[in-house]
Amino acid sequence: MQTRLNFLEKGEWGRVIKIACGKEVYRRLLELGVTPNTLLYCIRWAPMHGAVEVKIRGFCLALGYNEAAFIVIEKEGD
């Protein structure tokens, strides 16, 4: 089921499908390794669903709520 990263709950896995956003943020996300087909794991949300911390390519990446909403993902079962 396709959804966006801002709907990924703590402890869930997702696979990046595509990124839909402006050029600058897109480039930043690409260079950090958020490319299609990459697996990511939601570690936690900040208080009040502010920012999200995901594990991707072996490191922890913090993304704001809006940036998370740019990333189209597919939830992965475990």
């Binding site: 600058e24 490191f59 922890c60 990446l61 993304l63 704001g64 809006n66 940036e67």
Partner: peptide, 12 residues
């Protein structure tokens, strides 16, 4: 303008 993005690595 738009809101500023927050994309940051969390160091251990």
């Amino acid at each position: 303008g738009e809101e500023a993005p927050f994309i940051m690595e969390m160091p251990p």
